[in-house]
Design a protein around this nucleic acid. Structure first.
Lengths: 204, 204
DNA sequence: GTGGTTCCGTACCGTATGGTTCGGCATATC
DNA sequence: GATATGCCGAACCATACGGTACGGAACCAC
């Protein structure tokens, strides 16, 4: 992840390494136990470096959220002419991302930081969810223009319904650490069901 | 809330008062800043009492979660012969509850406590969500038996779809402190839409 | 080699927390 | 009225945190 710059800019590479280390600690120990000490130790960096580069604790986490949100979400590459297949593939991808360890840890941290006046949540929403859902809504709008979907209340609301059907309660339950994590086939099933239901609601 | 016992058992009443005070602090300041000191101050109680009665910090929050989860969820009282109306009323109620200050604060605390080895989340799921969703699923199963709904994959999955349509992403966004809280009419609209969509998917 | 820069490792400081202890007041019981 | 109990308020302790400061090693320029 982000090793791209390692050759040309060792400083940026080191920065990326440190952020990755921070992410490891966050995933392993949770926000509350992710102290600057722990990060420095994991990254084999000095606290002085951390503070010099990231300002303070919140600055570090802001950088961390940006770092992972950018790395996490690549463009959806399925063929949009096949609505069902596209929805299923995209749904699967989104679910995998949302239920992954890093996403869960980051979301937990963002939620925890809300009442500490954190802007983490805003960054996360804009950089993560926002981009993805705009993509989906745009695709839905396109299909509507082609006459293949009927979305009288707008593509955004339709996209919201799709996301609701897709996620159900599983993301919240994952955030709450409810034991059973979804297996790959279960994720596939959820994505397929969401696509079906969505088309049942909106197919022209 | 829970003043019922105040007359007969002053100890239980005081206990309830203290828990309410703890909840106020939690809602106002968030989990991280809800120290035992702050609770004692808000409740005008001594820390000694807190530790005597609740064991330790986690014990206090476990009691707090139980206290509020029990108080929060009263039975749904709408008339179940009218499917649409029942779904709308129930949906509205659930949304109001889920998006209320206390629910958000409690959920945030539970999420934060997951990685601290907390059992808060388990209590919250069982005592809150579990009970409510069992009620809804049971009602759906009843309608299915009457031949008014068609739920080939079972009432539980159908109830899940309803919840997904109802909540969409709004609960997560609220947990993330995303600025705009839903107004009462917006909640009403969401509940109505969820009921409509649900019936479109499952009406016989 | 000399000076400068960068960064690691560690020691340090002030603060705040969880949890314990203790003196004192009020109430209840006999 | 004496004694016991329950609880408040405040002081106390050990710990851990965020953040700063300092000595030394590696590297670079010249």
């Amino acid at each position: 992840m982000a090793e791209a710059q390692r050759a040309d800019d060792p400083q940026a590479a080191r920065r990326s390494e440190i952020l990755d280390a921070g992410l490891r600690v966050l995933v392993r120990d949770g926000w509350a136990r992710t102290s600057m000490n722990a990060i420095a130790k994991e990254a084999r960096a000095s606290k002085e470096t951390l503070y010099n580069w990231f300002g303070d604790r919140r600055g570090f986490f802001a950088a961390l959220v940006r770092h992972t949100a950018q790395n996490a979400l690549e463009a959806v590459d399925a063929d949009p002419s096949e609505m069902t297949a596209w929805l299923e593939a995209t749904g699967q991808r989104v679910l995998q991302l949302l239920l992954g360890d890093t996403s869960i840890a980051i979301n937990r941290a963002a939620i925890a930081s809300v009442q500490e006046g954190g802007e983490l949540a805003a960054i996360l929403i804009e950089e993560g969810r926002g981009k993805a859902m705009r993509q989906v809504a745009a695709q839905i709008a396109l299909w509507a223009e082609e006459g293949r979907l009927h979305v009288p209340e707008g593509a955004d609301l339709a996209a919201d319904d799709w996301l609701g059907l897709l996620k159900g309660d599983v993301q919240l339950l994952a955030l709450l650490g409810q034991g059973k994590p979804l297996s790959a086939p279960e994720i596939e099933t959820r994505a397929r069901r969401a696509a079906q239901q969505f088309l049942r609601l909106y197919a022209a």
